[in-house]
Nucleic acid binder design. Sequence first.
DNA 1: CAGTGGTCTAGACCACGGG
DNA 2: CCGTGGTCTAGACCACTGC
Lengths: 253, 253
Amino acid sequence: MPAEPRYRRIAEELRQAIAEHAYGPGGRLPSEGALAERYAVSRGTIRQALMLLRHDGLVTSRRGTRRVVLDDAPVQDFAQMQSFARWARSIGEVPDGAVIRQGWHPADDAEQRQLRITPGARVLRVLRLRHLSGRPAMLERTSYPEPVGAIVEPLPPDTVSVTEFLERGGVAVADAEHTIDLVLADAEDAEHLGCAVGDPLLRERRRTTDPAGVPLEWSQDRYLPGSIAFVVHNSLASTPLTRHHMVPDGRDG
Amino acid sequence: MPAEPRYRRIAEELRQAIAEHAYGPGGRLPSEGALAERYAVSRGTIRQALMLLRHDGLVTSRRGTRRVVLDDAPVQDFAQMQSFARWARSIGEVPDGAVIRQGWHPADDAEQRQLRITPGARVLRVLRLRHLSGRPAMLERTSYPEPVGAIVEPLPPDTVSVTEFLERGGVAVADAEHTIDLVLADAEDAEHLGCAVGDPLLRERRRTTDPAGVPLEWSQDRYLPGSIAFVVHNSLASTPLTRHHMVPDGRDG
DNA sequence: CAGTGGTCTAGACCACGGG
DNA sequence: CCGTGGTCTAGACCACTGC
């Protein structure tokens, strides 16, 4: 079996059609009933497909009228957001990366909390510099818990995509939480990113977990500004974006 | 009828239970069948409720095992992300705001594209300073298309929540797209936020649309750093977050 | 193996939008 | 008023996990 369920393939077809401006923007989709007939499935299956497009912000929906196609929403999948290398390729850049330093350490407070491990447990800390087509773009400080770290440790320092390697090793990421804010470059940031100490950087802190809820990595990425932005879609149907207040000297950093 | 559908109320109860650590974190939820029996509804309704929790990152799910409770995910609803005033109150701060300048202008290129209006149409541009408990926190540059602007224009300059007013006036926000990056303060930013020209600011550009896909506002908000962060959850089940590449001098700003 | 969530069906009734 | 999407039901079969 192709493993890909019916409603996903239908969603893919509709996504394609929308991308080719078959309906809009501002246009209206066929009714659920019409789509059900066209694809020879039940209305429930069609609704599952449309829910995917709804959550990604490609269409609205309202009782009483047909669904409306929104302006071209950015379309990336989970895998692309998860992997720097995959993302870089998708925008036509050449990803590159090198480990600057790595080693095992006893987990500090933040790591214990984020990775849900007990005091005394070890983590593998890796400092990596990421390039986009040769230019430094991001400095990544990642902590891996014991089992994941053991897989990452022996990798060659110039491994371009650790994420893709982990996937092939059966480590599956199912959920991620990202916190985006602004920090000033410290001496280490400045040295590797080629900026001055105190220059502003866009920071993304990320924790990923597997399908069982077990934390897989905790990372703090610092991007040189000017070439990157994060885009989020939210709606009445789902609210993945929240604004957070932090005390001026918030730890967890 | 209480207007609130069954599955939403069930989701709310489960959310409450999770917040009170009735199961986890790391714990397992009852099976769908058990929940269906407990609430005397069909399994489908339970699945709708669980889908809400899934999208908000409160629980994972995997074939074969019970759902796992993730660490306390930030819980805010769409309305809170939509309104500065509502958000401020929810974190125990006193929101405040004042219009610095407002007026009608012919829409520029970016406004025409973002608000989907024709060349020559007018927009209401409003410059607002937002306070958190007396301290300047954010400077907001918003453009409203003709019909919305007509509602906003006559409001008193110290209206705390424009969003809430619009809601009462029947203007319903259904979708929003946020782009988050970093900019340096210009003279106007510096003057009103009380920082120096060139100081880094966290920028959120936002476009909201109504249930029919009609743009309602386009806004560019600049936050003083250090007290705010944006948190996003994504998962295999939905990917509202994307990373975007911009040419160094990207317009649309 | 039994139990779980994922997919899918074929119905039903209702709330809402627009002519 | 009719057509739409939103909600809900009661079943079915399958894929997967974990014992």
